[in-house]
């Protein structure tokens, strides 16, 4: 699958996909999307590069290990569990505050959102690790 077209396209498409996935993540609370979908998209976009070139290349190019992605994601999830119990009454209770944003009512940010970001990173890590592992073979071209 070492096609030139794919390789060139990947340069642009990949970044498009990543940006798109972040948007999906951000709007997830109000429109279709969210951490899972965004994460899967982002993961697939990284994988796309793997298809275009070789996974080995992607592996060397990627500065952050997929496991760290997962670790970071789970960490965010874990962190989002705690404010509720300290500020309100129960674990995972949503804590919201508004980030002022010019010309709008402001952007609402809360622990559930943090949670979703955690899911996002986790899913990226998982997807990439899946692909790495399953393509971990010298005969793979």
């Amino acid at each position: 699958m070492n096609s030139i077209i794919l390789q060139i396209a990947s340069k642009y498409v990949r970044w498009l996909l990543v940006i798109f996935s972040v948007i999906i993540l951000l709007r997830g609370h109000n429109a279709p999307g969210g951490g899972f979908i965004g994460g899967l998209l982002a993961g697939l976009s990284l994988a796309y590069k793997g298809f275009a070139f070789t996974p080995e290349l992607l592996k060397t190019e990627m500065k952050v290990k997929p496991e760290s992605f997962m670790g970071l994601g789970l960490m965010l999830i874990f962190i989002s569990v705690w404010p509720g119990v300290f500020i309100k009454s129960a674990f995972m209770e949503g804590i919201w505050f508004t980030i002022p944003f010019p010309f709008t009512e402001g952007y609402k940010f809360g622990t559930p959102f943090l949670f979703d970001i955690g899911v996002f990173f986790t899913v990226i890590g998982v997807t990439v690790l899946f692909l790495f592992s399953l393509s971990n073979n010298k005969s793979w071209k």
Binding site: S68, M70, G71, L74, M75, F78, V81, V85, S89, F91
Partner: peptide, 21 residues
């Protein structure tokens, strides 16, 4: 503080730490 969730969260935290370190 209601700590009923701790049997869940402790192993979760430990697993994360083992994933990272």
């Amino acid at each position: 503080m209601n700590i009923v969730a701790l049997p869940l969260l402790i192993p979760f935290a430990l697993a994360i730490s083992l994933l990272l370190f």
